[in-house]
Design a protein around this nucleic acid. Structure first.
Length: 307
DNA sequence: TGTAGGCTAGACTGAATGCG
DNA sequence: CGCATTCAGTCTAGCCTACA
């Protein structure tokens, strides 16, 4: 079979599958219904901001503005005072679906379900055909402005415009245009969403401007940033051979023994000794050199030990 | 000489046992 | 039967060591 043709077919297949994936899973991703879709967009943006601020230990100051441009045609602008996004990471964050940045982190974060803010880019370009505008700075005096869309054949960001200039500001601002959506003050609408988010996050200050120009300020009622969620190490009994194998491969520890102690809850040098007595190889070896069979042995030993 | 992993001692947590 | 005390064992911080 003609190679070129195969590639073409494959590309076509992928192109279809990314858009198809989005269309088929629209409901699951929150993009069903004119009112709910708009809320989802706001939700993704606000969640991103809250997460970024939380991680950077910043008291969130968020602005959400929705403007009506026409019939079922809106512009959403969201600004935060967060840590900003490294310019080289912007294309992936906003332009790649299923980028999965939180894969190897055993930490509870908001909004890791779904496809994140790239879904906003996708929804925006599917309904209005317009790129998403991102302005961000990590507070080093350099501000980066991007205009980008998703190249659906490559599932990659297509940067249409990238501007750098000097300004003393820190945070992230996102602007997108949406069609086929409706603003509502009701239960499912963005206003209710923002109101409830403000209640759930008393350390955040959120300003909401609705399409009629009405400005609502949700002042923060607490100045304490919630304690960051602590990373919970996996329990040894809950791990599969495959998990162990991949964790070992990406470990920086020099010995399997210390890899085990540092990667799992309830794992002490004493337990490692017990494991050592049950396996046929030396646990002083490099964890990256563990074979599948050796991982199986470790898992088997773990199952036999009481934790 | 600096940095990252290893080691160890003291703090803390959870469970078990004993006493009221 | 419930609460408190004690003890074992894990966790964590800080220092040490080895390697680049």
């Amino acid at each position: 079979m003609d190679v070129l043709k195969a590639e073409e077919l494959f590309r076509e297949f992928r192109e279809v599958s990314i858009t198809e994936f989005f269309k088929k899973n629209k409901a699951h991703l929150g993009y069903s219904g004119k009112i709910r879709s708009l809320t989802t967009v706001v939700h993704e943006l606000v969640t991103n901001s809250l997460d970024a601020c939380e991680e950077a230990r910043i008291l969130p100051d968020i602005l959400v503005e929705i403007r009506q441009l026409g019939d079922e045609h809106y512009m959403v602008k969201e600004v935060d005072n967060g840590p900003g996004i490294l310019p080289k990471r912007v294309p992936d964050v906003f332009g790649k679906m299923l980028a999965g940045t939180k894969f190897h982190r055993n930490i509870q974060l908001r909004g890791q379900q779904g496809i994140g803010v790239a879904g906003v880019t996708m929804f925006s370009q599917m309904t209005s055909g317009k790129p998403i505008k991102v302005k961000t700075s990590i507070g080093n005096g350099k501000v980066h402005e991007f205009e980008l869309m998703i190249d659906i054949s490559k599932n990659k960001a297509e940067v249409l415009d990238h501007l750098v200039y000097d300004e003393n500001w820190r945070g992230t601002q996102v602007e997108c245009e949406l069609k086929g959506v409706k603003f509502s003050l009701g239960e499912q609408g963005p206003y209710e969403y923002v109101r409830r988010t403000a209640i759930a996050n008393p350390h955040a200050r959120i300003v909401f401007i609705d399409p009629n120009g009405k400005k609502t300020i949700f002042e923060r009622s607490s100045d304490t940033i919630p304690k960051p969620p602590i990373e919970i190490k996996p329990h040894p009994k809950g791990i599969t051979v495959d998990d162990l194998f991949h964790m070992a491969k990406s470990s920086t520890a020099r010995k399997v023994s210390s890899f085990l102690v540092s990667s799992f809850a309830r794992m002490s040098p004493k337990k490692v000794k017990e494991i050592q007595s049950k396996v046929s190889f030396d646990l002083d070896k490099n964890p990256r050199k563990l074979t599948w069979q050796e991982c199986e042995e470790i898992i088997k030993a773990i199952q036999e030990i009481k934790f």
